[in-house]
Design a protein around this nucleic acid. Structure first.
Lengths: 122, 122
DNA sequence: CTTCTCCTCAACCGTTCAGTTGAGTAAGGA
DNA sequence: TCCTTACTCAACTGAACGGTTGAGGAGAAG
């Protein structure tokens, strides 16, 4: 895994177990044991997953006696959305421009009326 | 790598070379050779990267003689943003509620009647 | 002090991944 | 026809991943 922030974040979220942990942490903080409970793997494996999420900045851990409560750092999601929106908008603009070109080729000299219909992705 | 759509997408975007390809495809379609040009790896390696992006649904390929122009399927990004926004908003709501609780503890007796239900899913 | 709980570290194992080289296919150009 | 271009498939290699077990530290509880 590359060591830049986005690679860490995307890599962390590429695992369904880790995504499920994020989902549960969005509902509230939880200890390592709490998080491990529903899964059919060892606590050590869950501890490793948390380390991956923490290295990506998605999760922080504090201390409460022997317990290590985990907290979701939702701000990190911004890095992802900013990256995605940038290229999505770029692609949309290009699509609009293609529409305009096609309209011109069809001989329609009218000002471009934009009709962008998007279906849901599969 | 798990074979569910989100895992494929996140996994595909976890590699900086593949993210760079997506960035360049957002500016316009490109053939495999075009995409491979700037990188210091073999064309076969780039072909594999494109296959990963295509399996995630992020890229589609068409035919033009020997060439295989690649096209960015930006709609797939919606799956990611929907997933992220869901948990970001959940975390924000929780944060707002915490604010309310703290305000109450400080003696500000505004009646708070907003409950937050928890429902985590994968 | 002893024991138990909660968690992490270290070593190992099998699988997947990102890269390589070599061969092969499909199409255009000489 | 032969040659070149554009790309993919197959096999291999080293590194990283996700899991395991075992050991051990830190802190509460007895």
């Amino acid at each position: 895994m590359a060591d830049d922030p986005l690679s860490r974040i995307f890599g962390a979220l590429a695992d369904p177990t880790r995504r499920d942990m994020v989902a549960r942490l969005a509902a509230g903080d939880a200890t390592v044991g709490d998080l491990a409970d529903p899964y059919d793997v060892s606590v050590q494996a869950v501890s490793k997953h948390i380390k991956v999420l923490a290295d990506a900045g998605l999760v922080s851990q504090s201390k409460d006696a022997q317990r290590r409560p985990c907290h979701l750092e939702a701000d990190v999601f911004d890095l992802v959305t900013v990256w995605i929106e940038r290229y999505r908008h770029q692609a949309e603009q290009r699509y609009d421009r293609l529409d305009a070109v096609l309209a011109e080729m069809r001989g329609e000299e009218r000002p471009t009326d934009r009709h962008l219909e998007q279906g849901a992705a599969s």
